[in-house]
Nucleic acid binder design. Structure first.
Length: 693
RNA sequence: GCCACCGUAGCUCAAUGGCAGAGCAGCGGUUUUGUAAACCGCAGGUUGACGGUUCGAAUCCGUCCGGUGGCUCCA
């Protein structure tokens, strides 16, 4: 006698087990026709799932009253579309084996094992889509079949797919009580796939779809395991939503920092220099320098002291720290002197000998530094320290080099040479909590000033089964606890993730997404009990005995490259005035006003503003257009009338018209105020009612 | 590193086996202009590199370099 509670609180009673589909039909034929699935006591289910006891259910429909899709509907449609795609691919490419096909945040994929000699190509997409369209037009029902685990395993073994067998074993290990298949159509005749479900009622409910891209993947995400082929697609409950999605992807592309970087002349990357090595052009250098000065001022307020260290260090230093050789495959190769190479050559030594001797420490060389910490540690260790000196906070915009995999390098977000806003705090264990608070407040200041609100916090813990982490477990326990407690004070939700720690300690990371939805680590705060031990760091305590300090590694921006990359996208290139490479541009109406324009320019520059003038022979319309595409915050149009009154006619970025004229001094006062406050809103609002960006 | 796709002028793109082209940017000139592109002209190329197929290659094939999207990795 199930009693069904609906989202509006109403209750319906049934004499016998009922399905969500039947409940929908009871409510109304329209709902029954619309329904894609149901949430039954919070679990997304098929409409045909039998409900035997009291339950709260809500029916999932393609879109809400405003025509927006609901996450559940998207998931059902996309997962169902993954099946349709897989069937289509199997029709086109006989012998292809199914592996795994889940729904994603923006679509779905299906991983497949492709027969040798028949790689998939994007040229196949047309055929895939044609078959998919057919399958959808046939409007075949998704039918769930359940087998006991024994029967199911027997069936899978008979079919002989190691991938599906593996999926089933994993499902059983996760506590599945039976194995389920979904047949697209008639059981025993039509296409089927081992699948937990749920699915939409029939293929016809997939209103709009597109096969998007092709990639390789690894079975179980393990690079040593089988290589699979992954086909990505997306699906929506309406064609219009699909088109909106595709348009949104195109729009996002225009905000891509690589596109804006070229358009705004911020940075470039040149093959002759090397991939992943950023050339900061004058405009980009201004953005970076402003950020550096911003953070430097905050650091000094917080008692940090700035240092400089070289870009390289002896290999032995990194053997001590543990960076070399454990991460040698992600470092630029060591620098070895010509004499040593000659010596090896004379001995007839080969590359393997060389690698061995570097590894063993028989041979020394230099390394482009992969991290700044060993250098800062040596600065700390160059003095004796009393407990009264602590904490010692050493900061540097330190450039480090890492040999990132070639397929990973991307614009400013993943590079091989990067400058970290790095610092290392050496403190007592008692000071750790306060110091972590200081680091967090720095991150909060930065994110607050730049109005970055869309970020996630992750506490990265070690994976106890992985041997890459150095140091005794008790150190890790202390450090992990310190990170957890500090993160808890942030007042924003955070995830704890095993295996995300640095090799020497756990960390609190701040993650943000780029325009195409990829997540990147920005700021990081890491607690480290281990490197102080490796370097035998000491301070003298009040008991007149040596004690071991604790280290915090922290970089609130992360790296200048990645941070600026994401910042370009965050602002869509329209930097707040304090960061804008060119803050004001003077646009004389004609050459007749050129002299006055120069006078205005001089005043702006004297006031410390980054200003330019457009003295080209173009008409004012063209000058405005050019300056607008460069996203310059303020344009000052000057002509004879302005000159006479000693005024400037103001245009502010984002407001597509002339705001009116202002005395030059008033304009300068407003904008310098806006810059020094690092504000995002124009202070001209007090002069012009319309000046709300 | 792996898979797929891509690489033509500074930028965005056309030419699909038969004479390498356009727009913007650049340079020169005309115009002296009041709020998102005035007009005319000029110049710009070893089609990423190397090799092959072909009477003929930007186009087809191979290798390499670089980029894009994923995978894996990310101290």
């Amino acid at each position: 006698m199930p009693r069904i509670t609906l989202p509006d609180g109403s209750v319906r009673s049934y004499d016998s087990p009922v399905t969500a589909g039947a409940v929908a039909a009871d409510i109304g034929p329209r709902l029954a026709a619309d329904a894609l699935g149901a949430r039954i006591d919070g679990t997304l289910s098929d409409l045909t799932a039998s409900i035997t006891s009291d339950a709260a259910i809500s029916i999932v429909t393609p879109t809400d009253r405003k025509g927006r899709p609901n996450q559940d509907a998207l998931r059902l449609i996309r997962h169902s579309c993954a099946h349709v795609l897989a069937e289509a691919i199997q029709r086109v490419v006989p012998g292809i084996e199914l592996v795994y096909g889940p729904a994603l945040e923006t679509g779905f994929y299906y991983d497949m094992s492709v027969p040798p000699g028949r790689p998939l190509s994007t040229d196949d997409f047309e055929a895939f889509e044609r078959h998919m369209t057919e399958i959808i037009a046939e409007d075949r029902p998704f039918t769930r079949c359940e087998l006991s685990i024994d029967e199911g395993m027997a069936k899978l073994r008979a079919e002989g797919s190691k991938y599906k067998l593996d999926n089933a074993e994993r499902a059983v290990a996760d506590g599945a009580t039976c194995l389920s298949w979904y047949v697209t159509g008639v059981v025993g005749r039509d296409w089927e796939d081992l699948c937990a479900g749920p699915h939409v009622p029939s293929t016809g409910r997939i209103a709009a779809f597109k096969v998007m891209s092709l990639a390789s993947s690894y079975w179980h995400g393990d690079a040593a395991s089988d290589r699979l082929t992954r086909v990505y697609g997306t699906a929506f409950p309406t064609r219009q939503l699909l088109e909106e999605h595709l348009a949104q992807i195109e729009e996002a592309g225009k905000r891509d920092h690589r596109v804006l970087g070229r358009q705004l002349d911020l940075f470039c990357i040149d093959d002759a220099v090397g991939p992943g090595l950023i050339l900061w052009k004058p405009n980009g250098a201004i953005v970076r320098r402003e950020l550096e000065e911003f953070i430097r001022a905050e650091l000094i307020k917080q008692g940090y002291r700035m240092v400089y260290t070289p870009h390289i260090g002896k290999l032995e230093l990194y053997r001590t720290s543990g960076h070399f050789p454990y991460y040698r495959e992600s470092q630029y190769p060591p620098l070895i002197s010509a004499e040593q190479i000659q010596m090896l050559a004379d001995e007839g030594a080969g590359c393997a000998d060389l690698a061995n001797r570097l590894f063993e420490g028989d041979l020394d060389g230099y390394l482009l530094k992969p991290m700044n910490c060993p250098h800062h540690i040596k600065i700390f260790d160059s003095n004796h320290h009393s407990y009264r000196d602590l904490p010692v906070r050493l900061a540097e915009f330190g450039t480090v080099y890492r040999w990132e995999q070639s397929g990973e390098i991307s614009g400013l977000t993943r590079v091989r040479g990067m400058t970290m806003d790095d610092a290392h705090i050496f403190c007592t264990e008692q000071q750790l909590a306060d110091e972590l608070q200081g680091c967090l407040s720095l991150v909060k200041t930065i994110f607050g000033t730049l109005e970055i609100t869309d970020f996630e916090v992750r506490v990265g813990l070690r994976d106890p089964d992985d041997s890459k982490y150095i140091g005794p477990p008790e150190n890790w326990a202390k450090a992990e606890q310190a990170c957890r407690e500090a993160a808890a004070t942030l007042g924003v939700p955070f995830n704890e993730e095993q295996g995300e720690a640095a090799f020497y300690g756990p960390k609190i990371d701040f993650l943000a997404r780029d325009v195409i939805g990829r997540q990147w680590q920005l700021g990081t705060i890491q607690v480290d009990y281990n490197l102080p031990e490796r370097f035998d760091l000491k301070y003298i305590g009040p008991d007149n005995r040596p004690h071991r300090p604790v280290m915090i590694h922290r970089a609130p921006f992360g790296s200048m490259e990645r941070f600026v990359g994401l910042l370009i996208e965050h602002f869509a290139g329209a930097f707040p005035t304090w960061l804008a490479p060119e803050q004001v541009r003077v646009l004389p109406i004609s050459a007749k006003s050129s002299a006055y324009g120069k006078e205005v320019l001089g005043t702006l520059i004297d006031a410390g503003l980054r200003a330019g003038i457009d003295e080209s022979g173009e008409r004012i319309q063209a000058k405005i257009r050019v300056a607008s595409t460069l996203k310059i915050p303020y344009l000052l149009v000057v002509g004879p009338t302005d000159q006479q009154r000693h005024e400037v006619s103001v245009r502010a970025r984002g407001i597509q018209r002339n705001l009116g004229a202002l005395p030059l001094a008033t304009f300068v006062h407003s904008v310098t105020g806006e810059v020094s406050s690092r504000g995002r809103d124009t202070l001209l609002a007090e002069h012009f009612e319309a000046a709300t960006v």
